[in-house]
Nucleic acid binder design. Structure first.
Length: 514
DNA sequence: TGGCAATAGA
DNA sequence: CGTAT
DNA sequence: GCCA
């Protein structure tokens, strides 16, 4: 459930962790599906060779690690001619080792490991499925062909997606001050100035050590040809001066002023309301009102909006994030046999408290229309049981996405989360923002990448990819001139995807740029 | 001095 | 164009 | 506001 710190590198533990992060179902439904397995189910696909560009076929698979208590999986593996080894890593995981992929030239790298749901789903589908959604070794440096292709991070890059941004910075104070300046620029409708401050803050956040002086910066940063300190995204004039002020006096006076101003506080409160952004917040805050309550009395905003905002402002503990996702998936499984899902967002980045819950769901063998129908049914079901209390938006897929570059459908809503199970006491209920996304299996890892964030990471990711005339969005990569999509069906992991895009592997915990 | 992520709905 | 992801 |  929880990802460990990147420093801890126990091989087998990593594998267990990975199987959890991108959960191929919980396992309570395994027995029922296993009951349906049989050799004949797989017969049409046996020896069928290369499916869906995954480069995996039956004859390349050598060994399978199978839970001791899964006779039917054992039987299935035997029918595929796999050498069976029993796993003591995790009873719920079967790890399948395959031969080298045909289009790889390196001899050295290890084989991808796949969780046992690959076997089960393949049986259910009656064909050998691509392993893309089932690979487990994303984060295993010793056993990952992806790992061997990793580019190193570049601390000096101007792009956040090349740098390490841990959850907690040793310079949190300074980062915070820069963010206040950023907020102020947004409020002043100076969006590009605001962007510049976001970038500067991200840059500082990537410093691994506390900086106390310019000398500390020298140790940390790069130089230009004149031997002067030059850090990308921190210009010579404005932001540089503010950082020096901070180093000298331990504060940035402008940030202090902004933070103490009443208008800034009202502005921020307004922005926390759904549907109110910089523009309306600015307009409302300059009507002379001094509090949200006043604006409610005037009828500019409703009390419900304010109350909801107060709920949504509260951080969501990790345990609650996973239990809410659990409720969603539990209901999802009643509508869809074996969904694959991942909890993304701040949760995946390791935050102890999230702002919302981002749940990504996909499935093999379903069309997008079917997935979209599934999402609509899921929404209805969650509403009927009183869990989903508000649908802020539900996007529908237009059926012919031929030239639309969109392979996903999203639901943005609010759920009533209660600490005590089944309670209807409103005092025990907190409202939480939930995003549910269904997507095409081929774009799953790209969707994971997109929905994990942070915002700056995504921006710089797309900006970088664009330099190769490629456009990247949440569901596909395509040539911005020819409009041709890049085939991602063979992408086996998020890590593999980053390597494919010529980007370094930055663990989710280190994408906290905002 | 132009560009700064990409995309959708209201 | 505003707000949202 | 910063970068190329």
């Amino acid at each position: 459930m929880k990802r460990r710190a990147p420093s801890d590198k126990s091989t087998t533990d990593e594998e267990c962790d990975d199987s959890d992060e991108i959960a191929q179902n919980q396992d309570q439904d395994d027995n029922s599906s296993q009951a349906t397995l049989s050799e004949s189910d797989l017969a049409p696909a046996e020896g069928g060779g290369d499916h869906s560009g995954s480069g995996i076929n039956n004859s390349t698979i050598k060994t399978a690690l199978i839970p001791l208590n899964s006779p039917s999986l054992n039987q299935l593996a035997t029918s595929l001619g796999l050498l069976i080894t029993h796993s003591d890593i995790d009873v719920n995981d079967v790890i399948v080792k395959s031969e080298c992929l045909p289009n790889k030239h390196k001899q050295q790298h290890a084989h991808p490991s796949v969780c046992h749901h690959w076997l089960r789903d393949s049986a259910a589908a009656g064909r050998i499925l691509p392993i893309a959604l089932y690979v487990l070794d994303d984060y295993n440096p010793n056993n990952s062909e992806d790992g061997s292709d990793d580019l190193p991070p570049n601390p000096q890059s101007k792009n956040a997606c090349f740098r390490i941004h841990p959850l907690n910075s040793p310079n949190e104070h300074l980062v915070h001050a820069l963010r206040i300046l950023k907020q102020d620029r947004v409020a002043r409708d100076e969006r590009w100035n605001a962007l510049a401050y976001s970038r500067a803050a991200a840059m500082v956040k990537s410093f691994p050590h506390r900086i106390r002086s310019k000398d500390d910066i020298r140790l940390q940063l790069s130089y230009d040809s004149n031997d002067t300190v030059h850090t990308k995204n921190i210009g010579e004039k404005k932001i540089r001066a503010k950082i020096e002020e901070y180093l000298n006096y331990g504060r940035i006076s402008e940030a202090e002023t902004i933070q103490n101003s009443a208008s800034h506080k009202l502005y921020n409160a307004l922005c926390s309301i759904q549907g109110i952004g910089p523009r309306r917040a600015y307009e409302l805050s300059r009507t002379g009102a001094s509090s949200l309550g006043e604006l409610v009395e005037r009828g500019s905003i409703t009390q419900e909006d304010v109350t909801l905002a107060q709920h949504l402002e509260l951080g969501i503990p990790r345990t609650e994030v996973s239990s809410i996702a659990g409720v969603v998936m539990e209901n999802a499984r009643t509508l869809l046999p074996h969904p694959t899902h991942a909890i993304c967002g701040g949760y995946r980045r390791g935050k102890s408290e999230s702002n919302d819950i981002d749940i990504l769901i996909t499935h093999h063998g379903y069309t997008l229309q079917q997935m979209n129908e599934f999402l609509a049914n899921l929404a209805r079901r969650l509403q009927d049981m009183g869990f989903l209390t508000k649908l802020m938006r539900q996007l529908s897929l237009s059926d012919g996405h031929s030239d639309k570059h969109d392979y996903q459908s999203t639901l943005l809503g609010v759920v009533a989360s209660s600490s005590k199970y089944g309670t209807t006491d409103s005092a025990q209920v907190t409202f939480r923002r939930v995003d549910i996304i269904v997507c095409h299996p081929h774009s799953f890892h790209l969707e994971v990448l997109a929905w994990t964030g942070s915002v700056m990471y995504e921006r710089d990711l797309r900006a970088f990819v664009k330099r190769r005339n490629l456009k990247l969005n949440a569901s596909c990569v395509y040539d911005e001139h020819t409009n041709n999509e890049v085939d991602l069906s063979g992408i086996r992991s998020e890590r593999h995807l980053l390597a494919f895009l010529h980007l370094p592997w930055i663990a989710p915990e280190n994408r906290n740029c905002d």
